[in-house]
Amino acid sequence: MDSSEDLRAGDVARHGWAHGRLPLPTEGDDWHRFTAAWDDLVPDAYLGPARCRRNRRYGRVLAHRDGTLEPLLGTEFFQSKQINRAFGDQLRVFEPLTDKALTSCRFSEILQESVGLVNEAAGDRDWELGVHFIRVIAEPDEGSEPAPEGRHSDGHEYVAIHLIGRHHCVGGESQVFRRGEERVEHSVTMTEPLEALVLSDTTMEHAVSEIRTEDRSVPGWRDTMIVDFNTVQDLTEVNGRTHSSLQALSLF
């Protein structure tokens, strides 16, 4: 699929995955203010011996079926060892997304487009979204693994992986597999801002190859925004509700 094509919900519904691009602008002051958030990420404290240098922040958002986006308090993140061989069975608490990032109009627009696509594929519902801002950094003398856990699913219902940008790096090929099958169903090295993969996390698995520096004299990096989708059955049971909206916050 040409990365210039818009993402299609029908591909997610029929095949379990879609590759394309969000139909949003990636230039101008609003975009540059938004992408500056990746310069403000902090080192991931949970990597241990993993062959990866990674900076990140994390946030949670309640996406109501009426289109409202409600920021949630709390940045706890847990995956079982069965889901994540490298980092499972530990409660990870990440540094939160900054207020500047949360109130960016581009942030809300990316979430709205992503939620709209998943709702078209899966049916309208309320979602708890986990939002990861991640920068994977390769040093001149050492590559870096964007996904040290290897081929995996993430333990959610859907996952949207958005490329934000690349800087002096090569590699980072994404591969999509149907769960239980060896054949690669789709592979792509995303290069365009807001090029994305949207996956049914219950039926598909994915992997990403290491990135390396393009120029041996300087570091390189790959920035992504990853959105996890989990269905909310009862809004009263969602932890950290603020009863405010991102759209209202962005006006101030």
Rank of each mutant, 00 (worst) to 15 (best):
T213G: 14
E128F: 02
M190R: 08
Y58H: 13
H64K: 07
V61R: 01
D6C: 10
S153W: 09
L69Y: 08
L163R: 02
F34G: 04
Y46C: 09
F94K: 08
K81P: 02
S80T: 15
F177Q: 01
T98D: 04
D228I: 08
R56S: 11
G150V: 08
E192G: 13
V198K: 00
V131W: 00
E5R: 15
D66E: 13
A196Q: 08
G88M: 07
Q90V: 04
I161K: 09
E76I: 00
N239C: 05
D2K: 12
E157I: 04
T224G: 15
V93N: 03
Y158S: 11
S153A: 10
D126H: 04
L251T: 05
V136I: 15
Y58F: 15
V136H: 12
A121N: 05
Y158A: 13
H167K: 13
V159T: 14
Q247N: 03
T98G: 15
S245D: 15
Y58Q: 07
R135V: 00
L41D: 07
V176M: 00
L22M: 08
R21G: 05
N230M: 08
G59A: 11
D39Y: 05
E27K: 10
D154W: 00
P193D: 13
G130D: 01
D201G: 07
V131A: 00
P193R: 09
L235Q: 07
V184M: 10
D11K: 04
R222P: 06
N55Y: 10
D154A: 11
D30V: 11
R8P: 03
G171C: 11
Q112G: 12
E182K: 00
Y158R: 04
Q233C: 02
L41N: 08
Q82M: 06
V170H: 02
E128G: 00
F133Y: 08
E76D: 11
R151F: 01
V188T: 12
D228H: 12
V61G: 07
V131D: 00
G48Q: 07
H64Y: 13
Q175F: 06
V115T: 12
I226C: 14
Q175P: 00
D215I: 06
V184A: 11
V170G: 05
Q233V: 11
G20L: 10
K81I: 07
E205S: 10
P219Y: 03
L117D: 11
N119R: 11
E185W: 13
P23L: 10
H167E: 14
R60Q: 13
N55V: 07
N84D: 15
V12Q: 10
G88N: 05
E173Y: 04
A248P: 00
F252K: 07
G172P: 06
L129E: 01
L111P: 03
E214M: 09
G116L: 06
G172Q: 02
D234Y: 02
Y46Q: 10
G143H: 10
A36Y: 06
N84Y: 02
C105Q: 08
H162E: 04
L199D: 05
E149Q: 12
V118N: 12
